[in-house]
Amino acid sequence: MSNVVEAKALRVQIPLDRVAAQRRSQMLTRGGLVLAFLIVVFFTVLFVAPIYWMVVTSLKTTAEVFAIPTVWWPARLMWSNYPDALNVFPFITYAANTLRIAAPVTIGTTISSALVAYGFSRLRWRGRDLVFYLVLATLMIPTWVTLVPLYILFNHIGWVNTYRPLVVPSFFGDPFSIFLLRQFFLRQPQDLVDAARVDGATHLRIFTQIILPLSRPALAVVALFAFINSWTDFFNPLIYLSNPDKYTLQLGLFNFFSQHFVNWPGFMAASVVVLAPIAVLFFLTQRTFIEGITFTGIRG
């Protein structure tokens, strides 16, 4: 056991590029890996069921959606549901609008939350943790009771029916992301920060050149979540936008619900198209926060 503690004590002395190369640990034998693979496959099937169901429903007729016994594979695939669904609302316009919101939100959330998280983790000042609890506390207030005063506030400054209520707050730190990044920043070796301080580095420099590069996985998670949350948000656009020219994809999905009737195949086809970019994005970016972290230039 003492080896563990010793290795930790030695850690800062190990060149960081070697650490990077060794990040991935292999804890299991070959047999263990096979078992793990089978377990993962089994549960993936459970988790994939809804995706399968979404796609299959998007290819059904309305009658097949609720047929009993359940239709697991339609007799005739209704590919025409897709072009039909995308004609129900101005898909390209809404997609562009959604991107216009999601892109700045992603950038704003990541940058501002990282700054704030640094102030809550790598700097020590009186009252820091008290203020941090206040940040956490804002996550705990049910939104329903602040909705009306917040709307009145936004209306008062003329922001209703613009993208500003959806975008601007993200430039002022998101509590969830601040908390997440704080926890990750605290795990970075304090000795590195201390050494840099002794060498006369400013906090901004420590932040940008040591902490941020070391926290790439967490930053990627924050950026990805910010983008996805903004992309899939339907409540805030619903509250703050009323000009159809400004609507987002999630509001477009409502077009498949009428008073007494839901066009499920159309809704599912549109949902597949709306969510596909997220699946692709996730698939492409998951390497960033799960694999290959490079440590270039942190000692500079």
């Binding site: 009145i152 209306n155 009323s242 000009n243 159809p244 409502f254 077009n255 619900f257």
Partner: peptide, 20 residues
């Protein structure tokens, strides 16, 4: 202005009606 609702949830109408 088409402001969609689900079921009886007119919360976005109620909210907007409180303001100028």
């Amino acid at each position: 202005r088409i402001k969609p609702v689900t079921g009886n949830n007119y919360v976005q109408y109620t909210t907007a009606m409180t303001s100028s």
